[in-house]
Nucleic acid binder design. Structure first.
Length: 571
RNA sequence: UGCCCGAUGGUGUAACGGUAGCACAGCAGUCUCUGAAUCUGCUUGUCUAGGUUCAAAUCCUAGUCGGGCAACCA
């Protein structure tokens, strides 16, 4: 369980704490809590994305570092927007993300705000009895019209001074279904002149004759976020309620409700942090949904999506996501994080974990004319040069091999040190070859390369130490595994899709998916699904979900860093 | 024109009144049977103006810029 790369456990880390962890540490120091309890409270109305990963890492991380608990709670107070489909996907994604890291601090039960409906109702009754809430007959339009503006005070509801008895009666009849949707609300009695609009007698209950995915038709009144959330936290004994910046102005209301009710003390404390923004992608549920619905991507878990399920499908290790969240940190500054930071942690983790294999994405046939006609021999290469203990693999070498189209140029630019006519290159773990002839098809495309090999240049041979500038990967034509490979790039071309009033679809990268028929090292057929693999010199790949023995399929998680394509002269 | 929050290199962050540091990105070099990784070096920053102080990124005031807030959404 000791993973030095993850969030510090207790190891002598001199790493400074973010402002929230500092606060938690101070609360512990002051003896304020017996146990730290945080929570991750998604609304089941969409898939989890990388932005949620930040919140998950924060909440579960804090629980983990303090021997606490983090509750997974569905914030399902609005039946018209939520769906069970999402309850499952949220659990799957979260479990994958925290597996082996913070799964031991997750609440044993999956929690639902809807399980507290009866208690919410009783708290509302308490507020009415205390003269702190009233039933209002204003409809939505009237409510807004009397709410005022940021610069003007609102006006009191005409029903604000109803007696406690009348309010109690009306509220009960609201629950019993006597009134149609929107006919009445339960409102707090605070201050219609407050400069904070959320304190202007906000609604706590609305009438919705709607079927709830868990409580069915038990209720026709549902609590609003502001009323429910602080009580959910209170009921669960949450010590630190962490949310994003837009809830900052709701905090006075969060505190007001708990202050005015007989709830356990100390009350949970809400603290806000900045949500995660990533460049070259979009994160809003609305935009993500439209990508799915308009068929721009296959589904929520299309590998180009910034969702957690997409990351998983694409072969991004959970640890890479966690490291990324760690690097990004927690502040109140509205930032736009460079996706290169994420790409870095993905490569960092994958470099450590991936076996090396050869894959030729755009094959060109090479015939080694001075190699025996039916000759065949094994070449050996390490499974992972970064981990000697992972042993070696062998791959067959024959007279005809495939190399990648990118590794041959008839008229190469300066500093190109792969294969060229008359030039030499090393076939990695095998021989140095020299290109003697380029055979063309009728249309001018390359049919094959005819090369000769230096028989003594294999490892251990007399000319093995000859220096040639380039080393390339290859696959024996006879043994190659034919596979479909999906190559993904960023979904968008620009750092901020949709900026400057553009429609964000205008910024889509038309080349975000390319599918090729590749020739792979035969042992790749044995790669376990889910195991990462590096196609040497190309990038990190994994078994595609739809892969089968008859139709093997792989997809590219991420390319290698590539100094050459950055450097080479652009056409 | 109301209220709340924020501002440190290109990006993300640290420094809690005492030498502005780290990571990513970039550049240059090293190494290399992966143009990767490794290793080395370099470029680049405290929003502005005042004030307090021996000393300010840090405290105070004003301004500038950015974000949020007027669902019976969360």
């Amino acid at each position: 369980m000791s993973n030095a790369t993850d969030k510090p456990d207790s190891a002598a880390d001199e790493k400074s704490l973010d402002f929230i962890r500092e606060m938690v540490a101070a609360d512990i120091e002051a003896g304020k809590h017996e146990k730290i309890v945080t929570r991750f409270p998604p609304e089941p109305n969409g898939y989890l994305h990388i932005g949620h990963a930040k919140s998950i890492c924060l909440n579960f991380g804090i629980a983990r570092e303090n021997n606490g608990v983090c509750n997974l709670r569905m914030d399902d107070t609005n039946p018209v927007k939520e769906d069970v489909e999402y309850v499952q996907s949220i659990q799957d994604d979260l479990n994958w993300l925290i597996d082996g890291w913070a799964d031991h601090v997750k609440s044993p039960e999956l929690l639902f705000a809807s399980d507290y409906f009866e208690r919410f109702y009783n708290y509302a009754v308490d507020l009415i009895k205390a003269g702190k809430a009233f039933v209002c007959d204003l409809n939505a339009e009237e409510f807004m019209a009397t709410r005022g503006t940021p610069t003007e005070a609102g006006t009191n509801s005409p029903h604000r001074d109803r007696s406690v008895e009348e309010n109690l009666d009306l509220f009960k009849r609201m629950r019993e279904g006597e009134f149609p949707d929107g006919a009445k609300t339960l409102r707090a009695k605070i201050d219609m002149a407050s400069p904070n609009i959320h304190m202007r007698d906000p609604a706590f209950y609305r009438i919705r004759h709607a079927h709830h995915h868990r409580t069915g038709d038990d209720w026709c009144i549902y609590p609003t976020y502001d009323f429910a959330h602080c009580l959910e936290d209170s009921i669960e004994g949450i010590t630190h309620s962490l949310c994003t910046l837009e809830f900052e102005v709701h905090r006075p209301l969060y505190d007001w409700i708990l202050d005015n009710l007989d709830v356990p003390r100390p009350q949970p404390r809400q603290t806000e942090f900045a949500r995660l923004n990533l460049n070259y992608t979009v994160m809003s549920k609305r935009k993500l949904l439209s990508l799915v619905e308009d068929g721009i991507v296959d589904d929520w878990n299309d590998p180009r999506m910034p969702t957690i399920s997409a990351c998983r499908r694409r072969g991004v290790p959970a640890e890479a996501l966690r490291r990324f969240c760690d690097i990004v940190g927690v502040t109140k500054f509205n930032s736009l994080t460079d996706v290169a930071l994420l790409e870095h942690t993905i490569r960092e983790v994958l470099n450590k974990e991936s076996v090396r294999r050869f894959g030729v994405l755009r094959p060109i046939k090479v015939v080694i004319t001075n190699y025996p006609k039916n000759g065949e021999e094994d070449c050996e290469g390490p499974n992972n040069p970064a981990a000697e203990d992972q042993g070696t693999r062998t791959m067959p070498f024959t007279r005809e091999v495939y190399i990648d189209a990118e590794d041959f140029m008839e008229e190469p630019p300066p500093k190109y040190f792969r294969l060229r006519p008359g030039g030499e290159v090393r076939l990695k773990y095998a021989y140095i070859i020299k290109c003697e002839e380029v055979v063309k098809n009728d249309d001018g495309s390359i049919a094959e390369l005819r090369c000769t090999y230096d028989e003594g240049s294999k490892r251990g041979g007399p000319t093995a130490d000859r220096k040639v500038k380039g080393t390339i990967h290859w696959v024996s034509a006879k043994h190659a595994l034919d596979a479909t490979v999906h190559l993904y790039e960023r979904l968008f071309n620009v750092p901020e899709p949709g900026a400057d009033d553009r429609d964000f679809v205008e910024d889509l990268n038309p080349n975000s998916l390319e599918t090729v028929q590749a020739k792979l090292e035969p042992s790749l057929a044995d790669l376990k699904p889910g195991d990462p693999c590096q196609f040497e010199r190309l990038g990190y790949f994994c078994h595609a979900r739809e892969s089968s023995p008859d139709n093997p399929a792989f997809l590219r998680t991420i390319t290698m860093k590539d100094a050459w394509t950055r450097k080479k002269p652009k056409k």
